[in-house]
């Protein structure tokens, strides 16, 4: 076991280094994350946390869409739910399961807050993202970093 891990180390470090250097200029459209991963950065950057990443693929293996989107009230819109930690510890949204009962509890901050800082809220790999000529103006990560989400802002509707 242990020699295997040791042999892996230099390669991992190389890939990490490459990624970090890539991440400096790569827009989210260039990343290769899993289809339907949702980056949620309504408030995280402004609060000094990494944006949260929600992996749809992992959750759909364990739950049907209905559980979150009908029972728990998640809207079909990336960033459209205005999720806050206060709501989560009250048992709303993610907190309905991530409470130490159904799934691991909220003290594991970095498990969700694992996105690259400055990544805007978006639905990774969506058809809109894959269109060659953009059908909408993609968000500039530099502009959105540290900007608070305002549901009443015309731009966010």
């Amino acid at each position: 076991m242990s020699p295997k891990i040791e042999r892996k180390h230099p390669l991992n470090a190389l890939i990490l280094g490459l990624l970090v250097s890539l991440g400096l200029w790569a827009a989210p459209q260039d990343s290769q994350a899993e289809y339907a991963d949702v980056v949620i950065n309504n408030y995280a950057d402004a609060a000094g946390m990494r944006p949260a990443v929600f992996p749809h693929w992992f959750h759909r293996i364990r739950f049907r869409c209905k559980v979150c989107h009908a029972d728990l009230g998640f809207q079909f819109k990336a960033g459209g739910n205005q999720i806050t930690m206060a709501k989560i510890i009250d048992g709303q949204f993610c907190g309905a399961c991530h409470n130490g009962e159904v799934a691991w509890s909220v003290e594991n901050c970095a498990m969700c807050h694992s996105g690259i800082p400055g990544t805007p809220t978006h639905f990774h790999g969506s058809t809109l993202q894959r269109l060659i000529a953009p059908a909408y103006k993609p968000l500039d990560p530099k502009e959105t970093a540290g900007v608070k989400y305002d549901a009443n802002n015309e731009k966010n509707k």
Binding site: L16, S31, V39, R50, V53, F58, A110, H113, G115, I116
Partner: peptide, 22 residues
């Protein structure tokens, strides 16, 4: 790709490496 190579997760975050690779 695994989370730490996907360009969305921060590979410098240690918890990223605890996430399940798809």
């Amino acid at each position: 790709p695994p989370p730490w190579e996907d360009g969305i997760h921060d590979p410098e975050n240690e918890a990223t490496h605890a996430l399940q690779p798809p």
